[in-house]
Lab assay of single mutants.
Amino acid sequence: KKKPLTQEQLEDARRLKAIYEKKKNELGLSQESVADKMGMGQSGVGALFNGINALNAYNAALLAKILKVSVEEFSP
Rank of each mutant, 00 (worst) to 15 (best):
E73D: 15
R15P: 01
L16F: 03
A47V: 01
Q31H: 10
Y20I: 07
D12E: 09
S43I: 11
K2E: 13
N25A: 13
R14C: 09
K2N: 14
E11W: 00
K3D: 12
K22M: 12
E8C: 08
A54I: 03
A61N: 14
I52S: 12
A54H: 06
D36A: 15
E8F: 04
M40V: 08
A47T: 07
N50R: 06
V34D: 03
G46A: 15
G28E: 08
F49L: 14
I19S: 04
G44L: 11
E72F: 11
L48R: 05
N53L: 10
K23R: 09
A54Q: 07
L67C: 03
V45L: 12
F74Q: 05
K3N: 12
L16W: 02
R15E: 00
L63C: 06
V69A: 03
P4L: 13
N25E: 15
K37M: 15
A13N: 05
R14N: 06
S43D: 15
A57W: 10
D12W: 06
D12F: 02
L5C: 08
L55I: 10
A64H: 06
G44I: 07
L5R: 03
N53R: 13
V45S: 03
M40W: 04
L62Q: 15
Y58I: 12
S33L: 14
A61D: 12
D36Y: 11
R14E: 10
G46W: 15
R14A: 11
F74E: 05
P4Y: 14
F74I: 14
I19Y: 02
D36W: 11
V34P: 01
A57D: 12
K22P: 00
R15S: 00
S33M: 14
E8K: 04
L27M: 07
G44E: 15
K22T: 11
F49E: 06
Y20A: 02
P4W: 12
G41C: 15
G44R: 12
E8W: 09
E73S: 09
L16M: 03
L63S: 06
A13L: 01
L63R: 05
S30H: 07
K1Q: 07
P76R: 06
G44S: 14
A61C: 11
A54F: 03
K3I: 14
K65F: 00
L67N: 11
K65T: 07
Q42P: 15
L63K: 04
E21F: 09
Q42Y: 13
K68P: 07
A47C: 10
K24G: 02
R14M: 11
K23Y: 02
Y58L: 10
K2R: 13
E26D: 10
A60P: 02
I66C: 04
E11S: 10
N25L: 12
A18E: 12
I66A: 07
P4A: 15
L62H: 09
P4F: 13
M38N: 03
A18M: 12
R15M: 04
R15F: 00
N59M: 06
N56Y: 01
P76A: 02
V45K: 03
A18N: 09
E73P: 00
E21P: 00
L48V: 04
L29P: 01
Y20C: 01
A47G: 10
A60Q: 00
E21N: 11
A54N: 07
E11V: 07
A47Y: 08
N50C: 07
K37S: 13
Q31T: 11
F74N: 07
L10C: 01
V45F: 01
G44D: 15
K3M: 14
A13G: 05
E21K: 08
V34T: 04
M38W: 02
E21S: 08
E32C: 10
A47K: 15
S70T: 09
D36K: 15
E26G: 08
V34F: 04
K23V: 04
S43E: 15
T6V: 03
L5M: 11
L62M: 14
E72Q: 12
V69H: 08
S70P: 14
N53A: 12
G51K: 01
S70D: 14
L29K: 02
L27Y: 05
A18Q: 12
M40H: 04
K22H: 10
N56L: 00
V45W: 00
D36P: 02
Q31K: 12
Q9Y: 00
S30W: 00
L16I: 04
I52W: 09
R15K: 08
A61Y: 09
A47N: 14
L55P: 04
Q31E: 13
P76K: 05
I66Q: 08
N25H: 13
A54C: 09
K65Y: 00
L48Q: 03
F74W: 01
V69C: 14
A54G: 09
K68R: 11
